[in-house]
């Protein structure tokens, strides 16, 4: 399933870029992410906790920064995580693009998400909705994180 999240942030492109390339920091903007740690070059290990009512998933896996094109202001990362208890997981490829916008920088995050195994059986439509919600919260948190930073112009 494909998800697109757009948000406009009133920061310099460079600053936003540097923030986004700091994977452990940016990952904390996704609600439910815990304990992100490096696991090799451009690779990180971590856990994403997701709750949908009684269903609580602890998706443990890796995030790999696959592409960093600072000239083209585009990056891509790949996330693979599984919940062994349930016997399922997610695969996501996310691309982030930064483009100038009248009131700041537009951050466009495109996610191609696959929900695998038992978790997928729970109901793809609902999971899509949840993932969409997660990405929205992510955008809000990024904005907040940058806003808190001292050099913010907001």
């Amino acid at each position: 399933m494909k998800l697109v999240q757009r948000s406009i942030l009133a920061v310099e492109r460079e600053r936003l870029w540097d923030f986004l390339m700091d994977v452990p920091r940016v990952a904390r903007c996704i609600p439910g992410v815990e304990a992100i740690e490096p696991a090799g070059e451009n690779r990180y290990r971590g856990v994403l906790n997701v709750q949908i009512g009684p269903v609580r998933l602890a998706l443990g896996g890796t995030v790999t920064l696959e592409e960093q094109d600072r000239n083209g202001w585009q990056a891509a990362l790949r996330a693979e995580a599984d919940d062994r208890g349930a016997g399922g997981g997610i695969r996501a490829r996310m691309t982030a693009r930064l483009a100038p916008a009248p009131t700041g920088i537009e951050l466009v995050v495109e996610t191609d998400l696959a929900v695998l195994g038992k978790i997928g059986e729970f109901g793809q439509p609902l999971i899509k909705k949840k993932a969409d919600g997660l990405m929205q919260a992510f955008a809000v948190n990024v904005r907040a994180a940058l806003g808190r930073a001292p050099s913010s112009r907001e």
């Binding site: 009684p54 038992k118 978790i119």
Partner: peptide
């Protein structure tokens, strides 16, 4: 977890989503 009729919870448990 509390269970009463179980018609919803049983399915989630069989799907291994609630344990």
């Amino acid at each position: 977890k509390v269970i009463a009729g179980g018609t919803a919870l049983m399915i989630l448990m069989m799907q291994r989503l609630v344990r």
